[in-house]
Each structure stands twice: as structure tokens, then as C-alpha cells.
Design a protein around this nucleic acid. Sequence first.
DNA 1: TTAGATGCAAACGATTTGCGCGGAA
DNA 2: TTCCGCGCAAATCGTTTGCATCTAA
Lengths: 144, 144
Amino acid sequence: MPHSSLNLESLLEECAKSGLRRTSALRACLKVLLSSDQPLTLQEIGASPDLEVECDPATVYRLVTRLEERRIVRRIGFHSRAAHYCLRESAHQDYLICRECGAVEVLDIACPVEHLEKQIASESGFRDLDHELEFYGQCLTCQG
Amino acid sequence: MPHSSLNLESLLEECAKSGLRRTSALRACLKVLLSSDQPLTLQEIGASPDLEVECDPATVYRLVTRLEERRIVRRIGFHSRAAHYCLRESAHQDYLICRECGAVEVLDIACPVEHLEKQIASESGFRDLDHELEFYGQCLTCQG
DNA sequence: TTAGATGCAAACGATTTGCGCGGAA
DNA sequence: TTCCGCGCAAATCGTTTGCATCTAA
């Protein structure tokens, strides 16, 4: 039960406050993101068995894009062709990815760059700083 | 004069040893990568005024892909639709990217996760570990 | 009532691949 | 002489957008 501390209603509330309507598609996509412990692609969101209403790919795309603009959702690059997304509200995660098969593992480490972020923010003048840290390698299976 | 310490001939040598032929396209692409101080997209490589012979996009794609497989080139995600590439031999770089206009700045910091990498390698069993660290924010221009 | 949201279908852009020719080894 | 690498063109795939309809506010 990932994100048990996060609440669908409070997320919807936040969305509403930022100008989004409480549609069934929005609720459904948020629920899928809440139920996943790994970042998902738009396709994965749209095809999830947890998605309680059918959503057109374009709808998922527009919803997640809006959520990303409002910084409710975080985009993660990985190296796949498709972008991955997760809720920003959940704890920040760093990842370990197999560059061969694309398997994603969530790293159980204290993120080592939090303090750096503040320093970079003040030196660069950039606002709303955020970061992405991924390790790439060949997993045990692909070494076989 | 970026990468002044890196030598085109030694790169070509490394490519040859790993089974690539010394073609004019390979030389040209390596030269472009050597001359840039920022990661480039395939399009940017193919359109570079520094590219000394015309190269078909498919050729650039296949070349860079082979170089990446041989770990001579590193892929970087950023959040643009197109992947960026740089020479792995150059010093490892971390980046600061504007999530609005996409501007890329190379961070002048000692990378803070080198030691973590070793730890993760030994704990996970992953081989040939490598990492990518990027900071995202809104740059001064886009704050204007 | 009406401005934002959705579905459908078409457009886009960055790869990715098949194929026949040409050049490095 | 062989086989890898190249250009050309077509196929893929993940978005991205236009438009008419629907619906939350």
C-alpha cells in the first residue's frame, strides 16, 4: 500500500485550488499514481487495471501535463523513450536502472544532495529547485 | 577549446579497438562531440557547422548508438524530447536546467555521489555503474 | 450558462529499421 | 574480397494538437 499517508481527497483539493476541475478522469489518474510505488509512463497510467474509468491517451497526457505544470506531479527521464511520472508529494526517491532491460529499482538511501540544492539555488538564482538522481548499470539478470 | 586534453586520434583508436571502422562519419561526429562543451542531440550533431562531412540522420543515430553501447559516449536525458550525448572520457558533469526554456548550465561542483556509487554497486550487484544528476528550476530569464 | 475537459483523429518529431550500394580491412 | 557502414526512404512510437461535444462550476 504505497503512499498510505497520502490522501486522494487532499490531492483533489490541491488540484481544485490550482484551477482544475474535479473530473472522474483526474480522480482516476491520481488514484493510479497513488497506488504505484514506481514512476509510470502515460501509457502505463492509461492501461492500469487500477484506472477506474477509461481515459483517452490524450486525456491522460493533458491531465498529467497540467499536474506537472502545477508541480503536483514530477517527471522523471530515465532513459526510455517515454517519460515517467510520479506524485511530487511522496518522498523524494532516487533510482537504480538497468541500462539493458530498463528495470527500475527505488534506492533506499538518504538523498545526498539536498543541501547542495540550496547552495546551487542561491548561487544560480534559479527558483523552485528540484533534482533528479539516477544510477545506471547492468543488473544481475542481464549479467547472467 | 573544450576537452583540450582529449585527443581525436586516441578516441578513434579506442573505437577501432572495439570493432568500429575508421570512417569519415565517425571521425566527424567524434570531432563535433569533442568541440562541444555541452551535451548535444543527434540533430545538433548532424547540423553542426563543425561537422566536416555531411551525415545522414540515420548514420549519426547509428554511430552514436554504437558509441554509447561501447560506453565511449554517455547519454543524458534532460527533459527534452530528444536525448543528449557527450563523451564519457571528459570529466563527469552535473547540470542545472531551466524547466521552462530548457537552458542547460554545467555545474562547477565536485560531484557528491562518487562514493555512493561504489556503495550502491556492491549492494545491488549492478555492474558498470554510472550516474546522472540534474537540477531543475526556473532560470533568471524565465522569472523576469 | 460557459469556460474548462474529453474523445477522436490527424499531425509531429525523434528515433528506428530495411535494403541495396560503397568503402575499410 | 568481405563485411561493416552509409544514404535513402519507410515504419514506429510517444507525444501533441485541432475540433466538436460534454460537463463541472
